[in-house]
């Protein structure tokens, strides 16, 4: 890894996003203290203080692991109390704090406190793992693909839940994910990583609407990349318009082609237009309700694809 330089603000919901092997988990483990940077490899500061050489338990961090890492030999309450005990919290304080932590993640203490992790569902384990980390009131919560093992419905629910916890507790969340939708939905800011480097940092809107490189444009959302002079251009499918082949267009940017495929996606339809050689352009069209309002397009039909100059993003090489 090299060229990873990040500034995360206090209270921020920050995502490290990238394909597997891009170094996002290593970055998280560096912050946690499980890995050490090379001696001359740079520094890590938390709240202005260098944590280089400090063990994980000496850092003001909490962590939620990919597979939750709940201790199988301890009950839910014992799992949550573990950190409090290690921090020498007074005995009589522990039980109320465990209960409060469970409430925080919306688990009923009376029902779940005595259960073993093996008796919980995936979503419940996730909540216990959160409670166990949050009960210590860390300055930073590190989350390593925390929603990866959950099914879609639960994942969406937990995304909102994480967002809520971040807002109400004021704790900085740093989350590792390979799911771009998830990162867009939850984060204040996103760092897109590739091959051990940070390629772009910005708000979800900045990352989506002003991708700096081909990699970012393609990894987040869908993008049509065109070779232009002097650099490549990216246009999002929903920024493209499709008109019939004989219509007059005032736009400067026009491509002629034939419709190869129409993909029904529910709230939108994607129309793939073949514009010469083996190049397809992807155009997104809002679903007008195809059963009541049939679309004027069909496969094999010659069409024109156009866009406004302001909708194209100039990419760095």
């Amino acid at each position: 890894m090299s060229g990873v330089s990040l500034d995360v603000a206090a209270g921020e919901f920050f995502s490290l996003l990238g394909p597997s092997g891009c170094g996002k988990t290593t970055t998280l483990r560096l912050i946690a203290g499980f890995e050490d940077p090379d001696p001359d490899g740079g520094t890590i500061r938390i709240l202005g203080e260098s944590v280089i050489g400090k063990r994980p338990y000496q850092r003001p961090i909490g962590m939620v692991f990919q597979n939750y890492a709940l201790f199988p030999h301890l009950s839910v309450a014992q799992n949550i109390a573990f950190g409090l005990e290690e921090h020498r919290v007074a005995k009589k304080e522990i039980s109320p704090r465990v209960t409060r932590a469970l409430e925080l993640v919306r688990l009923d203490a009376a029902t779940y406190a005595a259960r073993r992790p093996s008796e919980l569902s995936g979503g419940q384990r996730q909540r216990v793992a959160l409670a166990r980390a949050l009960v210590l009131e860390p300055k930073i919560l590190l989350l390593d693909e925390p929603l990866g093992a959950l099914d879609l419905q639960l994942r969406k629910e937990m995304q909102l839940e994480l967002r809520r916890l971040n807002r109400t507790l004021g704790i900085t969340f740093i989350i590792v994910t390979h799911d771009q939708e998830e990162a867009l939905a939850m984060s204040d800011r996103i760092a897109v990583m590739s091959a051990g480097r940070v390629v772009q940092v910005g708000s979800p809107a900045e990352i989506y609407e002003r991708p700096r490189t081909v990699f970012v444009a393609r990894f987040i959302g869908e993008a049509n990349v065109f070779d232009g002079a002097p650099a490549q251009l990216a246009v999002r499918p929903e920024r493209l318009s499709i008109v019939s082949a004989d219509a007059a267009t005032g736009d400067a940017n026009v491509l002629h082609g034939t419709i190869r495929e129409i993909i029904f996606l529910g709230e939108a339809l994607h129309i793939l237009v073949n514009v010469g050689a083996s190049t397809d352009v992807r155009v997104a069209v809002r679903n007008p309700g195809v059963l009541s309002t049939p679309m004027p397009w069909s496969t094999g039909q010659p069409v024109q694809v156009t866009w406004q100059p302001g909708d194209a993003q100039v990419l760095e090489p």
Binding site: F34, A69, G83, E86, R132
Partner: peptide, 16 residues
């Protein structure tokens, strides 16, 4: 055994 269990203990304030 899952090695992240020990790592989890470290993040909860336990030393090695």
């Amino acid at each position: 055994m899952d090695s992240s269990l020990e790592e989890a203990a470290l993040t909860l304030g336990a030393n090695e």
